[in-house]
């Protein structure tokens, strides 16, 4: 599928949200960026079409609905904020999608203990909080994702690349981690209530292969 078509589709989603919670870093992935991410994952690695996908911190669901557009069999969507899931459900109904399901679930130190998802999903695609508000939450997301999935795609700040890569590499289930694309994140578009005017933030798209990758 053409990048432009993915982007046009994703632009029709609703993102508006009257009460964004700053501590949860609830900015959505802009359609152009989301389309580029999903197009890259499918075209270069074939990790969406015919796969069971999980979207961690799904918010209004752009990565879920984009994955389904690109042929995912099913997408589990996990999110800790009930209010933003209302938008997710509106989008799901509007786009008449049935092969996804949302769960109110919080990633924390304990969530690994309840990983019934372990070995049930093929691909995790996520845009986790950067961890500016809740220190270390970005890595908690990666750790949970690497524990349950064969391969993980995750967005992180380029400015902290070295330390993030080092920490991810040390996770027990991680075989390999690569920066597969450098992208720009226009936070102004999605985070209007930010006081300061923000310019583009540089982000890395990481591909993390876990030890379950070859057992399929």
């Amino acid at each position: 599928m053409k990048l432009k078509h993915i982007e046009q589709y994703l632009q029709q989603l609703t993102f508006n949200f009257s009460n964004p919670k700053v501590h949860l870093e609830q900015y959505h992935t802009p359609p152009h960026l989301a389309a580029t991410i999903l197009h890259t994952i499918q075209n270069n690695y074939n990790d969406i079409d015919g796969k069971t996908v999980l979207d961690l911190g799904c918010g209004s669901g752009i990565l879920t609905f984009g994955s389904i557009l690109l042929g995912a069999d099913f997408c589990f969507a996990l999110e800790c904020d009930k209010e933003i899931l209302d938008i997710f459900i509106d989008n799901k109904n509007e786009f008449e999608i049935t092969n996804c399901d949302a769960i109110l679930f919080e990633i924390n130190e304990k969530s690994l203990d309840s990983s019934v998802f372990k070995q049930k999903v093929d691909t995790v695609i996520m845009n986790p909080p950067f961890g500016t508000r809740n220190c270390g939450i970005d890595l908690a997301f990666v750790q949970y994702a690497a524990d349950i999935s064969k391969v993980v795609y995750s967005l992180h700040k380029t400015s902290t690349r070295e330390s993030i890569l080092k920490k991810i590499q040390a996770f027990k289930n991680v075989e390999q981690v690569d920066v597969i694309a450098e992208m720009k994140y226009d936070l102004n578009q999605s985070y209007k209530f930010h006081k300061k005017s923000l310019h583009d933030i540089e982000v890395d798209l990481l591909r993390i292969i876990t030890s379950d990758y070859n057992n399929s």
């Binding site: 009930k82 949302a102 769960i103 109110l104 679930f105 919080e106």
Partner: peptide, 14 residues
């Protein structure tokens, strides 16, 4: 509720 299971736990439950 509205099709979404709420699996959130309070801090003293975990």
């Amino acid at each position: 509720s509205s099709g979404i299971p709420n699996m959130l736990l309070k801090e003293d439950e975990i």
